[in-house]
Amino acid sequence: LTVEVTLDGRRIELHGLSEEAHEILRHALERNADDKEIKKILEELRK
């Protein structure tokens, strides 16, 4: 799955996400998580 997010003013596409990762990010974006929170989530998903 692919998600497009804006971090530090740049639009980035995240490819190859699992369903779980996609859901976690989608929920964070829906509640307008800040860049710091999104980065933390991405860091966790990379593990």
Rank of each mutant, 00 (worst) to 15 (best):
R26W: 03
E20Q: 11
R46F: 15
L1K: 09
V5F: 07
D35R: 04
E19S: 11
E44G: 10
E20L: 09
E4V: 15
A28N: 01
E23L: 14
T6Q: 07
L42C: 03
I38K: 01
T2C: 12
A33E: 04
A21Y: 08
R46H: 11
L29K: 04
R31C: 06
E43I: 11
K39H: 11
A33P: 06
I24S: 06
R26M: 12
E43S: 12
S18L: 03
D35E: 14
A28Q: 01
R26D: 01
V5I: 15
G9E: 03
L17W: 04
N32H: 11
R26G: 02
E37L: 07
E37Q: 07
I24H: 07
E30F: 12
S18I: 02
L14E: 01
L25W: 02
G16N: 13
E37M: 07
L42Q: 00
A21Q: 14
D35M: 08
K39W: 15
A28F: 06
L14N: 01
L45W: 12
T6R: 05
D34T: 13
A28L: 09
H15T: 13
K39T: 09
N32W: 09
A33L: 08
A28G: 01
R10P: 02
E23I: 10
T6M: 13
E20W: 14
E4G: 03
L1P: 05
A33H: 04
S18G: 06
L14F: 08
L1Y: 14
T2H: 07
E43P: 00
L42G: 00
L1N: 07
E13R: 14
D8F: 04
A33M: 06
G9Y: 02
H15E: 08
R31H: 08
V3Y: 06
E44K: 13
I38C: 03
R26E: 04
E13D: 07
A33C: 07
G9A: 02
H22M: 14
R31V: 05
R10Y: 11
D35Y: 09
I41N: 00
D35L: 07
N32M: 11
E20I: 10
I12Q: 05
A21E: 14
A21H: 09
T2I: 09
L29A: 03
D35K: 05
I38S: 00
L17G: 01
K36F: 13
I41K: 01
R26T: 13
H27N: 12
K47V: 15
I38V: 06
E37T: 09
G9D: 04
K36W: 13
I24E: 06
E43Q: 12
V5C: 05
T6G: 02
K47G: 10
I41T: 01
E19H: 12
R26C: 03
K47T: 12
H27Q: 13
D34F: 05
L25R: 00
T2N: 06
E23T: 11
E43K: 12
R31Y: 06
S18R: 03
H15M: 09
G9Q: 03
L29I: 11
E37D: 06
D34V: 06
H27E: 11
G16C: 08
L17E: 00
I38M: 10
E43H: 13
E23M: 15
V5D: 02
L1A: 06
I41Y: 02
A28E: 01
A21V: 08
E30G: 09
H27M: 15
R10T: 10
L45A: 04
R31W: 05
L25F: 04
A21K: 03
K40T: 09
E19I: 13
G16R: 05
L17K: 00
E44H: 12
L45C: 06
L45Y: 07
N32A: 09
I24M: 13
E37V: 08
H27P: 01
A28K: 01
K39Y: 15
K36P: 06
D8C: 15
E4W: 13
G16L: 07
A28M: 08
L45M: 10
E19V: 14
S18W: 04
S18V: 02
V3T: 05
E43F: 10
L42H: 00
I38E: 00
H15Q: 08
I12F: 12
H27C: 12
D34Q: 06
E23Y: 11
N32Q: 11
G16F: 09
L14M: 05
L45D: 01
K39L: 13
D8R: 06
A28H: 03
E20A: 11
T6Y: 07
L14T: 03
R46V: 13
D8T: 03
A33F: 07
H22V: 15
V5L: 11
I24L: 14
E4P: 02
L14K: 01
K39I: 12
E43D: 11
E20P: 04
A33D: 03
R10S: 08
T2Q: 05
T2W: 11
R11N: 06
T6I: 14
G9N: 04
A21D: 11
G9I: 02
N32D: 08
E19Y: 14
I24A: 09
K40D: 10
D8V: 04
L25M: 04
L7A: 03
D8L: 03
I12A: 02
T2V: 10
L14W: 04
S18N: 06
L7P: 02
L29T: 03
E23V: 08
I24F: 08
E37F: 07
E30K: 12
H27I: 11
D34L: 08
E4T: 15
A28W: 08
E44Q: 13
I12P: 01
D8A: 08
V5E: 02
T2E: 03
L42A: 01
L45H: 04
T6D: 05
R31F: 06
I24P: 01
E20K: 11
H15D: 07
E20N: 08
L45T: 03
V5M: 04
L25I: 12
V3G: 03
L45Q: 02
L25K: 00
V3E: 03
G9P: 01
N32E: 08
R11E: 05
I24G: 03
R26Q: 08
E30H: 09
H27L: 15
A33Y: 07
L1D: 04
R26H: 05
I38A: 00
R10V: 15
D8E: 09
R26V: 10
D8S: 05
H22E: 09
N32C: 09
E13I: 15
R10E: 12
A28S: 02
S18H: 03
T6P: 02
E30I: 10
R10I: 15
K39D: 05
K40C: 08
H22A: 15
E30N: 12
K39C: 07
V3W: 07
I12E: 04
R10C: 13
I12H: 05
N32V: 06
E19W: 14
I38L: 12
E19N: 11
L1F: 15
K39G: 08
E44N: 12
R11T: 12
